[in-house]
Amino acid sequence: MNRIGVVGCGLMGAGIAEVSARAGMEVVVVESSAPAAEAGQARLTKSLKRAEDKGKIGSAAAVLERIRLEISLDALADREVVVEAIVEDEQAKTDLFTQLDKIVESPDAILASNTSSIPIMKLGVATTRPENVIGIHFFNPVPVLKLVELVPSLITSPDVTERSRRFVQDVLGKEAIDCPDRAGFVVNALLIPFVLSAIRMLESGFADAEDIDRGLVLGAAHPQGPLALADLIGLDTTKAVADSLYEEFKEPLYAAPPLLLRMVDAGLLGRKAGRGFYNY
């Protein structure tokens, strides 16, 4: 595979586009509007320039030449693999997959989702080729973190799973783990209850944010505390994953605490908003 399409150029979409272009692929990124595409271009330029300054790549300009920003899904017609990286909303994603099914021409093309929680089967049945639909879940920041979760549905073809594995490992140089098609997959099914527990601890007044995070960093050798991590993930994304997990399993540990709900309502979404559990 040489031609990849990415839908969405936020933090995750831009990261997927960047690592694909750095691997030599021809990348088309589709955003919803011209201003969003301009913001995505600026995000890519900033990240690649930083990588160039650190000596991780030879030329940011050369990598950028392999990335094309568009505002029409029709630009994805000739892609061999398309990775969806839009808002973590089931209806928005299923609508997008219905459109991609009509636009992407090759019957062998892989239609992948970067969802962190939504069952892949629900996205697959929105198309006429559910055997070609798979979850390829990257982690933020994509250029840095090596892990990718591969999530085939019950009817994803073994060939699509294997080609996706080669794309992730041989082309992008990432490490893939196999995950069942259940909300949260492997990492978030473990991580989100941990983060929610930290939020409940803060909400109850048991400890403040700094001490909760310092405790896990200094006492458990975590690279960052759970509340700082929630700010990095985005509190809206944290809530969305929690909601998907709770809907699927109905376990209290997956229920979003009231503090998280109110912060999302207030727009206190973490790093991307400038304020979450910490100010940025």
Rank of each mutant, 00 (worst) to 15 (best):
V87K: 04
K49S: 12
P223G: 01
K174G: 05
Q224C: 14
N279C: 13
K49H: 14
L44C: 11
G184D: 12
A42R: 15
A34S: 14
F138Q: 11
E26N: 12
T127C: 02
K46L: 08
T94R: 12
K272D: 06
R50M: 07
S32P: 02
S47M: 13
A176E: 03
R43V: 03
P193R: 01
L44D: 05
L190V: 10
F194H: 03
F138K: 09
L154A: 15
G270T: 03
D265T: 13
V82N: 01
A14Y: 02
D108K: 10
R214F: 14
D181G: 06
D89Y: 07
K250H: 13
R163Y: 08
I199M: 03
E70I: 06
R3Q: 15
G219I: 00
S113A: 06
Q99M: 12
A21P: 04
S113E: 03
T115Q: 12
G40M: 11
P119F: 04
R50H: 14
L253W: 02
F194T: 00
A34G: 10
R163G: 12
N132M: 14
Q99Y: 06
E210Y: 08
K49C: 10
I134Y: 06
E26F: 00
A183G: 04
S116E: 07
P130A: 06
I136E: 03
S47Q: 11
L269A: 04
V217S: 00
P193M: 00
L245M: 13
L259P: 10
L150R: 07
A23D: 05
G13K: 06
V160D: 08
T94N: 03
R262Y: 11
A207V: 03
A255N: 03
P152S: 07
E65L: 13
S157V: 01
A17T: 09
G276V: 04
D213P: 01
Q41P: 00
V82I: 05
A220M: 10
A266S: 11
L202H: 01
V187R: 02
G276L: 06
G270P: 05
P258A: 15
V81I: 15
D231A: 01
E90F: 08
F138A: 10
N279P: 00
I199H: 01
A189Q: 11
G184W: 11
H222K: 01
I4S: 04
V27P: 10
R129N: 09
N132K: 14
E38G: 07
I110V: 15
S59Q: 07
A255M: 10
R271T: 12
V7W: 01
E38F: 09
A42H: 12
E84H: 04
A230C: 08
P223K: 00
A240P: 05
P143G: 10
A23S: 14
